[in-house]
Design a protein around this nucleic acid. Structure first.
Lengths: 149, 149
DNA sequence: CCTTGACTTAAAGTTAACTTTAAGTGATAT
DNA sequence: ATATCACTTAAAGTTAACTTTAAGTCAAGG
């Protein structure tokens, strides 16, 4: 089965322009053409899946390109590609942990507003907050946004 | 206790320029000045914490600003602020779920490389993959990057 | 035959979130 | 007293990741 750029874009939830941009940046190395028109095959979907995964977990386009270039080298780059994947796995794990932390923080704020709304005012919240077990004065967690070099 | 912009920047893991930029964008509404110099007080830290939380969970600066403007209105905006917090909580939950999904995907790729490296080649991986229980041909999950309007 | 719609390119434009620069102020250390 | 920091502003510059535009090709339907 083969697909047009529009169909693939639809499947991935992006626009055809975005896919053309990825192609231009070298992220779609083995997509065929017929009369100049891109024709996506089922065999391209394994790569589209992993591309989607790397992109949606905040790997920059440039780093994804590095990965693509390594893949083009074949077996000799297996180890390097493995390292990139392990690094990205680590990034994902850290991002999940961060988000779980911020979830607790926002749930505290949710409680804050629920309580204030019941009262009709947030004037007395300073007092109330001391009785909430989530109220503590940790440091501000540092911004640890991943840079992927 | 009071702090300079440099100290606060250090605590938050950003540069002083970034904090000045936030101030310019109206994200630091009640920071005092002495001789034109910003003086952060302990009382500012509650807001710095929530700012940090919203920012690091991908709420755009503009949306954070909206939230700040609502907060300035006092009790009359409690409900609207509550809605923003609930919405952001939802975003965080969705982002965690997405990341968990991509974690499974990348762990599959990790297994792929471990196996290929043992073999010294990825030539036979198509065959091997069929025996891995994680190998399935779901749709490509759509990009559901949150826009926060 | 001609219109419609989906595809093509190269190049310019957009947006968010900073970051840098240039010029200046003011307290502290030598 | 002078050099060195850390602070200040306004404005210009940067970067990533698209997005839009303009001009064109091509196959299918009425």
């Amino acid at each position: 089965m083969s697909y047009t750029i529009g169909q693939v874009a639809e499947m991935m939830g992006v626009t055809p322009s975005t896919l053309r941009y990825y192609d231009q940046e070298g992220l779609l190395p083995k997509v065929n053409r017929v009369n100049g028109i891109r024709v996506f095959e089922d065999s391209d979907f394994a790569w589209l899946r992993i591309l989607n995964c790397l992109k949606n977990t905040n790997m920059p386009i440039k780093k994804i390109k590095e990965y693509v270039e390594l893949a083009k080298l074949g077996d000799s780059s297996l180890k390097e590609r493995y390292e990139i994947i392990k690094e990205q796995k680590q990034n994902i794990l850290e991002q999940i942990e961060q988000f779980k932390y911020y979830l607790r923080e926002i749930e505290f704020k949710e409680w804050y507003y629920e309580t204030a709304i019941k009262e009709g005012t947030e004037k007395n919240m300073m007092e109330k907050m001391k009785n909430n077990p989530s109220f503590d004065l940790d440091e501000i967690p540092k911004n640890t946004k991943l840079k992927n070099k």
